[in-house]
Design a binder for these strands. Structure first.
Lengths: 172, 172
DNA sequence: TATTGTTATACTCTATAACTATA
DNA sequence: TATAGTTATAGAGTATAACAATA
């Protein structure tokens, strides 16, 4: 109740002093939470990454899948699903997409005829290289000369938050 | 081509040595990117936050909206949409949800009869307090005794990444 | 003519259940 | 019976176009 108790219906300080847009809203409370900053920052990163990958015909998840398949040739879909933290059911269309573009192949595993081994094609390996280069540029843009030590602190903090959800008292 | 070139179809080292699950997949390349760590960590934070808010009948976005309305009583929907970075169209159902639960009220603005001023009800203010307490607990769980200095470094880094998208050479 | 709130719609992402073929 | 891959589907989240009321 601190908004000048006169009778005149003050039309909101924020609404008055706007020259172009209207971001005169205080998010001070939310700024007290690290999760809020993580979300806002990640939104920016995600948007830029998707723009970066669009010319290559990749999305964030198809890019991640391609990288993991090149780095772990022969892995099975269920392993990839676990690594990407997506449901097996949802991984199917992702792998479909990569296979349709001849970036990877689904190869029957002789020892377990239920499973498919995922392997990159030469085209897949080539796109992998191009995508990595593009994403390196994206990261450089996002970090914009951030000190290496700061980066490492952030990575350690993120890893710690992620690991915290895995139970276990074994320190890393 | 480093997988023991014998004829025997080696069934993938990862697939062999699994005791319980199958996370024997290397994500070393992706780990070189800070964005990857941000995503993985934020997934954990988001999941835990939603679990934290569920008993209060709130989702991340309705919680954020409630906080901004309590902290900025009288703000208009378009301002809230801008602050939350969601489309006005999508904000409608969010505000509907809060209004239906009598946590906020939509009050006609006399000076601009197109707009609604959003104000918290006493119930809204009460839930705000309960939600903040719950989220403080959530953050403490996520950060698990992280040093204050580390937290500040992370927040500054996140802010910098977010701000980087706003153009401008004025350093902060 | 532009803006606020609104409706309708579509597209992506994600989560779940159930099916098939193998084990 | 359990598992790998698949299908279908439903629920969120998000983005766009168009409309009525008002400026």
């Amino acid at each position: 109740m601190s908004r000048s108790g006169a009778g005149k219906p003050t039309p909101n300080i924020a609404a008055v002093a706007q020259g172009e847009e209207s971001p005169q809203v205080s998010d001070a409370t939310l700024c007290g939470f690290i999760g809020y900053h993580m979300k806002r920052a990640f939104n920016v990163v995600q948007a830029d990454l998707n723009q970066t990958l669009k010319p290559l015909g990749l999305r964030m998840v198809t890019y991640s899948a391609l990288v993991l398949i090149v780095d772990n040739p022969g892995l099975r879909q269920s392993q990839l699903a676990a690594a990407l933290d997506v449901e097996r059911a949802n991984l199917v269309v992702i792998v479909d997409e990569l296979e349709r573009r001849d970036l990877i192949s689904r190869d029957r595993v002789p020892s377990d005829r239920r499973a498919y081994a995922l392997n990159p094609t030469p085209a897949g390996r080539h796109l992998y290289e191009r995508a990595l280069e593009a994403v390196r540029g994206h990261e450089a843009r996002m970090l914009n000369g951030m000190e290496e030590e700061t980066k490492q602190v952030v990575i350690r903090a993120m890893s710690r938050i992620r690991r915290g959800s895995e139970g276990g008292s074994r320190g890393g």
